[in-house]
Amino acid sequence: MTKKVQKETDITFYIRRYNPEKDDKPHWQKFTVHVEPGMTVLDGLHNIKETQDGTLSLRYSCRMGVCGSCGMLLNGRPSLACNTQILDIAKKVLTVASLPNFDIVKDLVPDLTPLFEKHISIHPHILRGDSGEMLNPTGEFYQSPDELTGYLQFTYCIKCGLCMSACPTIATDPEYLGPQALPQSYRYSKDTRDDGFNQRKKIVGDTHGAFRCHYAGECSNVCPKGVDPARAIQLMKRQLVWDYLKLRRRRAKSPILGKPEGVERIPEIPEPPPFTV
């Protein structure tokens, strides 16, 4: 593939500003930034903050698409500012705004509280009936590589909120669990170590649950980690329908593998540290 040649140029940034102490509603402010090839939107925003307006507020942390802090609406599309290069999406003008469907705390900082509340509501952890084994494990829960592949894709979620801000269903139904929480419910329901499907189905099969999704597919288009939330939601619906029709296959819980018997530990390998919880 031939690499597109990009030249340094001046780009006009239109940034949607909102200061809760002064403003009743957001307004657009214009900045001009000299952009070189390779500069990310986050670099451009730092340039503005350092040389033009120190009051610009934004949230960021890792600068490499891992932490999910710098989600913004860039030229009308929810994206991470740190892994979007300016010249890839703008020739002369770049619009930067806070993520839609989330309240604005200040300037480019969205209030992601609904995302985390919805995430918590689906019990995003392994649920098992044998609490004794959970608290005092006697071995490992066995899982085959194929079983791992069945949900691994959905574990890469970084909770950046891009999917929820792109979702047209959330736009008109703020109570909808959305493309962040629903794939996580599938991720745990598909996990062979987990036994919490019946507990989660009451939440994800409810009015504002999985069946509100009608596959606009934007969550999968904007996800910066390839999680494909739209796929997980459809697979979750499949489980819910099959369960309702009593056709869902009951799978055995992961067996507990204790220490192997009749073999000696290789002396060079140190013992694991004691449990801390």
């Binding site: 102490e21 839609p100 309240d103 705390v105 209030d111």
Partner: peptide
Amino acid sequence: HKSYSNKI
């Protein structure tokens, strides 16, 4: 804190 509803 005061925030702006950005629902579209």
